[in-house]
Design a protein around this nucleic acid. Sequence first.
DNA 1: ATCAATTAGTTAGTATAGCTAACTATATTT
DNA 2: AAATATAGTTAGCTATACTAACTAATTGAT
Lengths: 150, 150
Amino acid sequence: MVESKKKNERPEKAAEIAGRLHSAAIHLLRRLRVRDLASGIGPAQLSALSVLVFGGPRSLGELAEAEQVRPPTMSRIVEGLEREGLARRRTTEDKRRIRLEATNKGTKILHEGRKRRVESLAVVLQSLTESEIRRLGELTDLLEQVLRKL
Amino acid sequence: MVESKKKNERPEKAAEIAGRLHSAAIHLLRRLRVRDLASGIGPAQLSALSVLVFGGPRSLGELAEAEQVRPPTMSRIVEGLEREGLARRRTTEDKRRIRLEATNKGTKILHEGRKRRVESLAVVLQSLTESEIRRLGELTDLLEQVLRKL
DNA sequence: ATCAATTAGTTAGTATAGCTAACTATATTT
DNA sequence: AAATATAGTTAGCTATACTAACTAATTGAT
């Protein structure tokens, strides 16, 4: 990467940071995925389930949108969740729609799995100084803010 | 989330940040993946190719380790890259080993694809203030540092 | 009130990406 | 020379993604 000291360096800096963030996200998930597997539930199922648990019941289309996948993909993900007894489909007044909700088992599994999954990351974070942890929290805020605009 | 004002709140804070970072990483990649697809090359192939392009040639085992996947998985990823003419296998002195290298086409595709993929993120970043971008850069440093310990 | 259009979800078929187990071929060690 | 170890591949399974085409239900227009 060639460095530029010209006055308009913001776009380059933004692009560089974007690339590094992207790469960091890939590697973070690769490492945490290992722990996901221990719970016997895939990352897409886990993520969808967490929406139901933390965000409450919703339709398949809404869940697909929240998870940024197409409806057929979500249909299969839910199929897996249902097979494992982690979520259920409920009929609604509008008979085309379904209402998806987490079961007690799903809620429990999620909390346990989430803990295990993020545990190793949390361990590393605890080795940081108080101020580094705080700064990482700020990064997360900023990142969440950026994601809402994306 | 219940807030705690007790003196030992670091572990909780770390766990909470770990969870949010995990979730943010998932959603960041989901959104950027959409642009990946435009290049007709999957995310695993793209990521492996970028190691070859930016990090230079290496064996299959080394690449698998860098990418945190098992050798059979990398074998298939390379198969795809080779089929598309983006990388090639070369024999080495030790005839068990292979040397993987990016082709010119692979190098070119990667640079173009990388740009397009991260473009939408970079656009959003540019809408932040100068100081927010700088802070995001600093915080990305911190995240990379954490990843090295993970 | 009926027929067309829209909406919600599923099914079918394809591709990528992950795993383990078992295999082949080469290199190293005893 | 034979046993062991290492590097990759092959085979077979699962999950996750897509588009296209389907069914069923609702809404809208005539």
